[in-house]
Nucleic acid binder design. Structure first.
Lengths: 123, 123
DNA sequence: ACCGTTGTCAACCATCTGGTTGATGACAGT
DNA sequence: ACTGTCATCAACCAGATGGTTGACAACGGT
């Protein structure tokens, strides 16, 4: 184990059941049994899902007698959003600056080898 | 098989190697061998990663003789960002509206039972 | 016509994952 | 002191995942 935080977050959100749980927690805290109700699986399975979300830092759990209400920690969502935004913006920027199009110059304009100018081997 | 698009995207991004590839593709298209260079794995393994990204719609590949340059499709990143933003905002909104804090009213102000008003026992 | 480069396909392997059943712990009520 | 509810732990299982090796197809250059 000891996986990086970002992987844990993305991995946690890669499951539709887990995403659905997050969606419901966004509307308010909920206990395990409340969360488990809608899905056709055992409460144990949902407990595992909850554990995954917890390990990813997406939910925290408090104590109320034998109940352990789950609470969405929205801050971690920003971690993922931050990553996504960064590269979305980079790609967009690259597109805007037309590097892309320059690399695909129609060859009938100029006989200059349009393929890699000097992309040696490293980088 | 036949997994929903959002799961595929998050799942694809759950691997650090794959995220790194996305990061590099954000800077410009690259071939399989170029992508494989930095990692201590075989080219076949990277090919599989690329396939996963492709299936998630995150990259497209064109044809240039025997080369198949990979190109980042930033639009799909928006799919993920959109989902994240939605629930981050929902949670934030809930927090801002103080529903949260109301639910945790200090008991020394009011003896009204702060716990679930009518959550019987049924269900 | 050959060779080297680029990439894919297939089989195999170890581990992770999402689910199950069954047993058990920790409480609140009565 | 019981009983019922909420939740966790443990063992197990089938299928997905990330990696390997080995063979092979497709193409450009000489």
């Amino acid at each position: 184990m000891a996986v990086d935080p970002l992987s844990r977050v993305f991995s946690a959100l890669a499951d539709p059941t887990r995403r659905d749980m997050v969606a419901r927690l966004a509307a308010g805290d909920a206990t395990l049994n409340e969360l488990a109700a809608p899905y056709g699986v055992t409460v144990q399975a949902v407990s595992k899902h909850l554990r995954v979300l917890e390990d990813a830092g997406l939910v925290s759990r408090s104590r109320d007698a034998q109940r352990r209400p789950a609470h969405l920690e929205a801050a971690v969502l920003d971690l993922a959003t931050g990553w996504l935004e960064r590269y979305r913006r980079a790609a967009e920027e690259r597109y805007r600056r037309l590097d892309d199009l320059l690399a695909r110059l129609p060859d009938d304009i100029d006989p200059i080898p349009p393929a890699r100018p000097e992309e040696g081997a490293s980088r």
